[in-house]
Simulated assay, not measured.
Amino acid sequence: MKGNVSGAPLPHLTLRKVEVGMLSDAKTRSIVIQCALVALVAAFAALLVSTTFANLRARGIPIGFDFLRMPSRIVISEAILTYKSRDPYYWAIVVGLANTVFISALVIVFSSVLGLIIGIARLSSNPLAAGTCRVWVEVARNSPPIVLLIFYSLWWKVLPPVGEALNPLPGVYISMRGLEVPALSVDIASQGLFLLVIALLLAAVGWVVGRRGWLPPLAAPLVLAIGAVGLWLAEAKFTVDWPAFTGSNFTGGKELTPELTTILIGLTIYTTGFVAEIVRGGVLSVGRGQWDAGQSLGLSRGKILRLVIIPQMLRIIVPPLNSQYINVVKNSTLAIAVGYPDFLAVMNTIISKSSHSIEGVFIILGVYLALNLTLSSAANWYNRRIAIVER
Rank of each mutant, 00 (worst) to 15 (best):
G3K: 01
V5C: 03
P9G: 05
L10E: 09
L15S: 03
I33Y: 11
C35S: 10
L37P: 05
V38F: 07
A42G: 08
T52R: 07
G60F: 09
G60P: 12
G60A: 08
I61Y: 05
I63T: 15
F65I: 09
P71G: 07
S72C: 10
R73D: 12
I74V: 12
S77A: 12
V94G: 06
G96A: 03
L97Y: 08
V113G: 00
I118H: 06
I120K: 13
R122M: 08
L123N: 14
N126M: 03
L128W: 15
E138M: 11
R141N: 08
S143I: 12
I146L: 12
V147W: 03
L148M: 13
F151C: 13
F151S: 13
S153C: 08
W156M: 14
N167G: 02
R177P: 00
L179G: 06
L179P: 04
A183L: 15
S185C: 01
V186H: 15
I188H: 06
L195F: 15
V197L: 13
L201Q: 07
V208N: 07
G210E: 04
L215A: 09
P216K: 02
P216R: 08
L222H: 02
V223M: 07
L224H: 01
I226W: 03
A228N: 01
G230R: 07
L231T: 04
W232Y: 11
L233H: 07
F238M: 14
D241G: 08
G247N: 03
N249S: 14
I265C: 15
F274L: 11
A276S: 14
A276N: 06
E277Q: 11
R280E: 08
G287F: 01
R288N: 13
A293Q: 03
G294E: 05
Q295S: 06
S296K: 06
L297A: 04
L297C: 02
L305S: 08
R306H: 11
I309D: 11
Q312H: 06
M313I: 01
I316N: 09
V318S: 03
P319E: 06
P319Q: 00
L321R: 01
N322K: 03
N322S: 15
Y325P: 00
I326W: 10
N327E: 11
N327R: 11
S332Q: 08
A337P: 09
D342H: 06
V346Q: 03
K353N: 03
S354F: 00
S355L: 10
S355Y: 11
F362K: 02
F362Q: 06
I363T: 04
A370C: 09
A370H: 04
N372V: 11
L375Y: 02
Y382S: 09
R385P: 09
I386W: 08
